[in-house]
Design a protein around this nucleic acid. Sequence first.
DNA 1: AAAAACCATTGATCTGAATCAAGCTTTTAA
DNA 2: TTAAAAGCTTGATTCAGATCAATGGTTTTT
Lengths: 209, 209
Amino acid sequence: MTVNKGELIFQEGDSGEGFYIVAAGKIKVFKMSFEGKEQILHIYGPGHIFGEVPVFQGTSFPASAMALEPSTLLFLPRQAFIRQIGKSPALAMNMLADLSRRLREFTVQIENLSLKEVPARLAAYILTLAQEGAAHSQKIALPPKSLPPAGVSLPVSKVQLASLIGTTPETISRVLKKMDLAGFIKAEGKKILILDQEGLEELSHTGRL
Amino acid sequence: MTVNKGELIFQEGDSGEGFYIVAAGKIKVFKMSFEGKEQILHIYGPGHIFGEVPVFQGTSFPASAMALEPSTLLFLPRQAFIRQIGKSPALAMNMLADLSRRLREFTVQIENLSLKEVPARLAAYILTLAQEGAAHSQKIALPPKSLPPAGVSLPVSKVQLASLIGTTPETISRVLKKMDLAGFIKAEGKKILILDQEGLEELSHTGRL
DNA sequence: AAAAACCATTGATCTGAATCAAGCTTTTAA
DNA sequence: TTAAAAGCTTGATTCAGATCAATGGTTTTT
C-alpha cells in the first residue's frame, strides 16, 4: 500500500488485523494526549516493521501511526503470519529478538524522559544519530569515540524532534544554541557538526549545560 | 533461589544467562540515574516473569532488579529455554504474547510520564490498582464503573510509589491530600477508599485538580 | 506568482513540581 | 527496650521548561 504525507495508517484503539513493513518512506508511531500534545514513540524507516503488538495479543493498537512523507508499506495479515510462526521456530526466534530489542529501547526512552533533562536527552539523541550514520555509511562500524568532528543531519523537523524527545520546538532551539555556544556542536539548520564528542557524552549523562 | 529484602538480583549491564519467575515476594525492576534518582519500570509479584530481554537478544540486562521483600525465585537458564522454544510453538507464542503485553504497558508508561501531570498519573495508578484488586478477588471481573466506594491498598511504600510514577514522596503526599479534600478519595495510610470513580477517571485524563 | 500553511527563532512570563528543611511516626536492628 | 534507620507530612523556596507572543523564513498549494 502507499500512503501520503500526513496520512493516518492506524489509530490507537483500532483492532489490528496485521502488521506493517516499511518499504520506502518514514513513519511515526505516537501517542496523543487529551489536549492534543503528542509524544512520538518511534520513527521507522525502510526495512523496519511496526504495529505487531496486536498480532500476538489479539487486541488493539496501543498507539497511532502516521506517514511523515509519502511512503510505501507492505501489510502482513495476522492469521497467515501466525501460521508461519508455528511452522518456523527461526521466525519465532527472530520475532522474539525484535520485540526484546524494542523493550530495551523503551526502557531507555523511559529513563530519558524520567531521569534526564532536556539537554541530556538532546545530546543523547544527537550521539545516537551519529552512531547510526556511521554504521550506515558502508564503512566498518566505527570504534566508539572515533575521530570527530562527525556531521549528522536531523532526519525530521524540529517540531517532530521535540515530540520525540518530549519537549517543545522552542526549547530545542534554545538548547541547540547553548550547545553551539558551549562549543559542543556547530548547528546550521538541519545540519549538525559534532565538535566535541566526549563533551556531548558527558552532557548526555550529567545534563548540566 | 531466595533473596532478602533489598538484595540486588541483577544489575543493568550484567550479562543475562537466564530469566526469573517470582514464586513468592515482590521484585522491582528499575533504572538509576547518574545522581542516584531511580525510576521503577515495573513491580513483579508471584507468577510474574522478569529479566527475559537478554535471553532473546544475547545481550545484557537493560535495567536492574531488587527484592522489595524476602522473596523466592525460580531461575530459567537461557540455553535450555531456547531449546524448549524451538520444540514448542505454543511456548513461543506465549512468550511473544507476554513481550507484546509488556510493550503495551511501556507505551502507557511513556504516555503517562510525558503527557500527563502527577495528579493524572496518580489517579490512573489508583484506578489500575482497583481494577486489579477487583479481578483478583475471586468474583467475576466487575463491569467497568461498578459500585463505588471500592477500597484499594497501596502495595508499596510511598517512596517506591513515587519512583514508580516518576515523582517524589513529598508530591505524592500533597496530591493525595488534595484528592481527599476534593472528595475523590479517602486516604488513610496505605488504605485508599475510592469515593468518586468517575471523577478519578476524568482526573486521570485531564489532570486538573 | 501569490497565498496559505508550516517551520524556526527569540523574548517575556508563568507554573508544576523538585529541592531544601524540619519535625514526627513507624519499623527494623542492635 | 533502646537506638537507629526509614517513612511520612507540611512549609518555604527555587528552577527547568512550558506557554504566550511576535517576527521572519520556507515550503506547499492553488
